[in-house]
């Protein structure tokens, strides 16, 4: 067994330090060490997007990042998407559009959609569908998810989140 390594991150806006074995993925540490269980383990091989987080401004599968690689990085998980106790417009629109059933894929979709809207505030439907192609949902069939994201992009509240 390898020795644990000290890792310092900025996690959802807070300085967070943890110990990780080199073989542990960021996803494992988020869930099992830091108790942030919003990111889900779906496929654990980069296909499903349920574990997506934003690392240094870039959307990544946290199952394909070693926790030790996050040393010095800024990481945003689904737990860091809401704003001072208020749901993020994306979260509100997912509820309004009933864009989920079992909910396992939902954190990943919302984190992906957040990364999309950060980069492309006014995406076309095609752009939304292509951007979310790395997120799999086996319940709802995507349409409500796409509508929720497009509606969130149009929402005046979203503008306020950028202020």
């Amino acid at each position: 067994m390898s020795n644990k390594v000290r890792v310092q991150t900025k996690l959802n806006g807070h300085d967070v330090e943890f110990l990780a074995e080199p073989r542990q993925s960021l996803l494992e540490v988020l869930r099992d060490t830091l108790n942030l269980t919003g990111a889900k383990e779906g496929c654990n091989n980069g296909n499903c997007g349920a574990c997506n987080v934003i690392m240094n401004g870039v959307l990544v599968n946290s199952c394909l990042v070693l926790a030790v690689e996050a040393d010095g990085a800024e990481v945003t998980t689904i737990e860091g998407i809401s704003l001072a106790g208020e749901l993020h417009p994306l979260q509100k629109k997912f509820l309004e559009h009933a864009a989920l059933q079992c909910g396992i894929c939902t954190p990943g979709f919302i984190v992906s959609a957040k990364a999309l809207l950060d980069k492309h505030p006014d995406p076309t439907e095609h752009e939304v569908r292509m951007w979310l192609s790395g997120n799999l949902c086996r319940c709802t069939g995507y349409d409500k998810i796409v509508r929720a994201v497009l509606d969130a992009a149009d929402s005046p509240e979203l503008e306020a989140t950028r202020a």
Binding site: G46, V58, V60, N61, L64, V65, S112, A115, L116
Partner: peptide
Amino acid sequence: IGGVQIQGR
């Protein structure tokens, strides 16, 4: 190559 989150890495 993969989706956006793969292309990020």
